[in-house]
Computed example of a mutant assay.
Amino acid sequence: MTNAQNNYVLGLAATSLFTEPLALEHLSKSNADFGTYNVPFDQVSKLLDNKQDRDIALKEFLTMLLRAIIKESFELIKDYSDETNQSALLKGQPWFQFARVIRNCISHNFQFEFTPYDKGLLPVAWKGKTITLALDGQPLPLSLFGYVEAWELFSEFKAFAGVRLK
């Protein structure tokens, strides 16, 4: 859970840095070396130097962060709960079904694809946000679940894992 949180915060910090002129200058001269590969960052500098391209790139980067923090932390809690015979406790959380449907949506290119099981549970709600059958086949609206909700749901995951799980 701590790694998922750190990765999200590091990504947010990187987003902040990506708008700084000194960072763009540094990126234009930097690269990553691994194995026999050398990946120059000048393409990143050029991409971020154009406002329209930067806005698109940063939105996609933040979307990746959202996917990582929710998907990874949900799976960690689910796997641990399964391994320690605490699945019933997890499934009894008021956010569980909402989080499960969001995790599935995020895993399917941010598009809702309800299974027959999901359809039988809908609507599901959490913190005033409701997922209904009308969203089937639709993209996830950021007004329903965006960066704020991702952080709040992760915080619920973390609190549950730290306090309720043995």
Score class of each variant (00 low, 15 high):
N3P: 05
Q5K: 09
Q5V: 02
L10V: 15
L12Q: 08
A13M: 15
A13Q: 15
T19Q: 14
L22Y: 10
L24C: 07
K29I: 03
K29V: 09
S30R: 03
F34W: 14
F34M: 12
G35A: 12
T36A: 05
V39K: 07
V39C: 03
V39Y: 04
F41C: 13
V44K: 00
S45R: 06
K46N: 09
L47P: 09
L48W: 08
D49N: 13
D53N: 13
I56M: 13
A57Q: 04
L58D: 08
L62M: 10
M64H: 01
M64Q: 00
E72L: 08
F74M: 15
I77R: 05
I77Q: 04
D79A: 03
Y80K: 04
K91Y: 09
G92W: 06
W95I: 05
W95L: 02
F98L: 10
R100V: 00
I106G: 08
I106H: 10
S107T: 14
H108Y: 10
F110A: 14
F112S: 14
F112Y: 15
K119R: 12
L121N: 06
L121D: 07
L122P: 13
L122R: 11
P123Y: 04
V124P: 10
A125T: 10
W126K: 06
G128R: 11
T130V: 11
T130F: 09
L135T: 01
Q138V: 00
P139Q: 09
P141D: 10
L144G: 00
F145Y: 08
F145P: 00
G146Y: 08
E149W: 10
E152G: 00
L153R: 04
F154N: 02
F160Q: 02
F160S: 01
F160Y: 06
V163D: 04
